[in-house]
């Protein structure tokens, strides 16, 4: 087993309670969502580099080609801009493409089609054409693959009107949000996190959707609010569990969708706690943390009892080396320390 695979396998998550329902891994939950969406709607197609290869995009596309055929799920040339445009044109004409990338970094080659075309078509032609497409990618971390294979690019896309951005953290959400993203009539980005792919969770059977733009309270608390999505909120949840043993009760809000942002759920929580920590897998500057921090300053200043804290990446590219990575990424201990500091402030 390659060392990086071993790393992902060694991650420990709190085990789900089997009495609460069927347990599935995150990747299998996504796989199930694809099968349901393709079964349910013949206009859904899935494409991307290697979606039909033996590793099947972390297992998320396994078995789909055998079941739905090579016309509906297929490998693509290594040509991100054109394929993003092909998806846009296909979506404008009756298909629902899901374009998969094993790293978000590769989407940067297709920004012209994504940012300047797909996101704007509906506005530019005065609502005559919809662009129902999903752009899916898995954020890398801890692979030694460094600055060009580990980027979290949601911050770069947050300010683009017309896009939606989904970042699940649990298997059940990964399935329900993907089904919503595929059914949505707009371009939706779904950013998964490589480190969540083997996380298990209780996943309902069959078809269900989790609405885009609705966060969820993962843990109730009154001392401070921590808000974020994806693997960042998973780490923050772990930190919150540890803090509870110290007598600090954090309220943990998983946004699930970072665009549009569920403002109401944050505001309600801040009304109780008066303290806000924002976590993200991307850079702190100009990203999800910055936007939510700004919302707090602009709209909820009267609720704040302490400065807002951001826990995200420094204004530095991702390093490749193992030791440098330990300094770069916030871990549970660091998150816990910052949350503790804010609670006591």
């Amino acid at each position: 087993m390659p060392w990086d695979e071993g790393l992902v396998n060694s991650l420990v998550y709190e085990g789900p309670d089997p009495s609460e329902g069927r347990i599935l891994s995150y990747a299998k939950a996504i796989n199930e969502a694809f099968a349901i969406a393709m079964e349910h709607d013949p206009s859904v197609i899935v494409l991307g580099q290697g979606v039909d290869d033996p590793s099947a995009m972390f297992g998320t596309t396994r078995g789909l080609q055998a079941r739905f055929g090579g016309a509906r799920i297929f490998d693509t040339p290594v040509a991100e801009e054109s394929i993003m445009g092909v998806c846009t044109g296909a979506a404008m004409n009756g298909l629902r493409p899901v374009y998969m990338h094993n790293r978000p970094d590769f989407i940067l080659l297709a920004f012209n089609q994504l940012v300047t075309h797909a996101s704007k078509v509906h506005f530019m032609d005065n609502g005559q054409t919809n662009v129902p497409m999903v752009v899916w990618a898995a954020i890398g971390r801890g692979w030694g693959s460094g600055a060009q294979h580990s980027q979290s690019i949601q911050g770069l896309l947050l300010g683009v009107p017309g896009l939606k951005i989904v970042m699940p953290s649990t298997p059940a959400d990964a399935k329900g949000l993907l089904l919503s993203a595929i059914a949505d009539n707009n371009p939706v980005l779904v950013f998964e996190h490589r480190w969540l792919m083997k996380k298990d969770g209780v996943v309902p059977e069959g078809h269900y959707r989790i609405p885009l733009g609705e966060g969820v309270v993962r843990r109730r608390g009154t001392d401070l609010t921590v808000v974020g999505a994806s693997h960042a909120i998973e780490l923050a949840s772990q930190a919150a569990t540890r803090l509870a043993k110290e007598g600090i009760e954090a309220e943990v809000i998983d946004l699930r969708t970072v665009k549009p942002i569920d403002e109401a759920i944050i505001e309600e929580s801040l009304g109780k706690t008066g303290r806000l920590v924002v976590v993200d897998t991307g850079w702190a500057m100009g990203g999800v943390c910055a936007e939510i921090g700004c919302l707090a300053a602009e709209k909820w200043f009267h609720l704040l009892q302490a400065p807002v804290r951001r826990i995200a990446l420094p204004d530095v590219p991702s390093p490749a080396g193992f030791t440098l990575e330990q300094f770069y990424y916030p871990d549970v201990e660091r998150i816990q320390a910052i949350m503790r500091g804010l609670a006591r402030q």
Binding site: I45, A71, R72, E81, S82, I83, M84, G85, V86, C87, T88, G89, A90, A91, M92, N93, G94, L95, P97, N112, Q113, T116, H117, V121, D125, T129
Partner: peptide
């Protein structure tokens, strides 16, 4: 549809053709 980005409409037309074909 059109694009004001040079070449921008070209892959979109291919996507339309893909949809027609499928």
């Amino acid at each position: 549809g059109t694009s004001a980005i040079v070449g921008g409409a070209v892959p979109i037309a291919a996507g339309a053709a893909l949809s027609l074909k499928l």
